[in-house]
Design a protein around this nucleic acid. Structure first.
Lengths: 226, 226
DNA sequence: TTCATAGTTCGATGATAGTCGAACCATTTG
DNA sequence: CAAATGGTTCGACTATCATCGAACTATGAA
């Protein structure tokens, strides 16, 4: 009947294959131009423009103009979380777009989710920080303990800059491959950025895959162990 | 970009208005027959049969035959959680199917989510049980404390029967109206059932609305206070 | 200014998919 | 058994919408 939010409208936006490809591409966290997204999805620029307009109107994308370029990114972490939830359903129903291959394994091990680390490494990181008492969970909220505060600063992250902003510092995000939470929020983003800056991890330019260097793996395990 | 689960397939299933109506109707937790769902969505039985077949094939619905009737229900709590996530997006984008009315307010106060209590009453219940130390949260997991175990039994719930089954007893589920968690899982279901048995609450036959009696409200507040 | 690139708008086309009538199975009831 | 109800399958119709060519605007470079 006619009560509740219009779920069909949003779902139909995501349900078009080309638009789903665009959204999946944007799950990598980088803002992409209309041309890049068109190329990514294998369609012309006119068609892409139409799709992007609908996605923006539906509140799934945000866009900012920069010169003659128009950069698109996911509107919020909630959008990313919903996409992950849909991926979970697709997996459990056995609907993969491709046979599980090497790329699939890499995705499960470590990938970018919007702007933070997901996959096995992501959930291990979350679990490790909680285990060391640096993160404290209460209901569905997460926050840094005093020790965690100190740890984050020592790791080279400007925590004051994060807390100054309105966006939540710590947030949980559910994994389609692991079925466990990993750390989102501005701290989740800052940690992944720091991993990159330290040369621990590199993002693939084309996909969501994150690859860790030998040094990175060692450092990562050190983090978990304390 | 052919990596990852086929999100478009699942989303397009939900994105068809008639199917979305059916899924929303099933969020009330009751299993419904094909005819009932057809009537609910305002279409003929032939069309409904086609839609239901697709939803089942997509892993969103489960069906069981009983005599000459065919009862449909949501396939899992994950499906319900994903639908709630989509509702959250639709709300934040301002896409309601109807103007917020009295029914909307009732839905926000107390409603059925799949098989357990959601809305303000749902999140208050969850928060109250955690506050009294009866429920313990760790990461995204929830479990009963020793005191909680005793409390549940004293409340008249056959806890042994719940734990004997494979399904998780405690589980968190996110609310689109409250943006907080409430209690799902077999215990969440059992609690709502018990509320009904005690005459505390009654479900509306047609919608997801749950209405509490005066006695129910008093008892409910007593639960939270301890 | 002239050229080039990025993006939008419009209109025509074509394919996908939702819809229902009609005929068909299956189960229950009289 | 026959009648009735619940549900499925098939085929034809129709509407929606993604797609792209063509023309247009806007920003940047030479």
């Amino acid at each position: 009947m006619k009560d509740g939010p219009d779920i069909a409208y949003v779902a139909s936006l995501i349900g078009e294959p080309v638009r789903a490809n665009m959204l999946t591409a944007l799950m990598a966290g980088r803002a992409l131009t209309a041309s890049e997204l068109a190329h990514e999805a294998g369609i012309t620029l006119q068609t892409a423009s139409s799709h992007l307009g609908k996605l923006e109107q539906g509140g799934l994308l945000r866009q900012r103009k920069q010169g003659r370029h128009k950069y698109f990114s996911l509107a919020s972490g909630e959008v990313a979380a919903t996409l992950e939830a849909l991926m979970g359903l697709a997996v459990s129903a056995g609907h993969l777009r491709t046979r599980p291959g090497p790329k699939d394994a890499a995705l499960r091990e470590a990938r970018v989710c919007y702007n933070h680390l997901a996959g096995e490494m992501g959930t291990r990181l979350f679990g490790g920080l909680v285990g060391r008492g640096l993160l404290v969970t209460q209901d569905e909220d997460v926050r840094l303990s005093a020790a965690g505060d100190e740890f984050v600063r020592a790791f080279g992250i400007d925590l004051d800059a994060l807390t100054a902003k309105r966006a939540p510092v710590c947030k949980q995000c559910l994994d389609w491959s692991e079925r466990r939470s990993h750390l989102a929020g501005s701290l989740g983003r800052a940690l992944l950025d720091r991993f990159e800056a330290l040369g621990w991890a590199t993002r693939d330019g084309k996909s969501r895959v994150v690859t860790f260097s030998a040094k990175g793996r060692a450092g990562f395990e050190g983090l978990l162990a304390g």
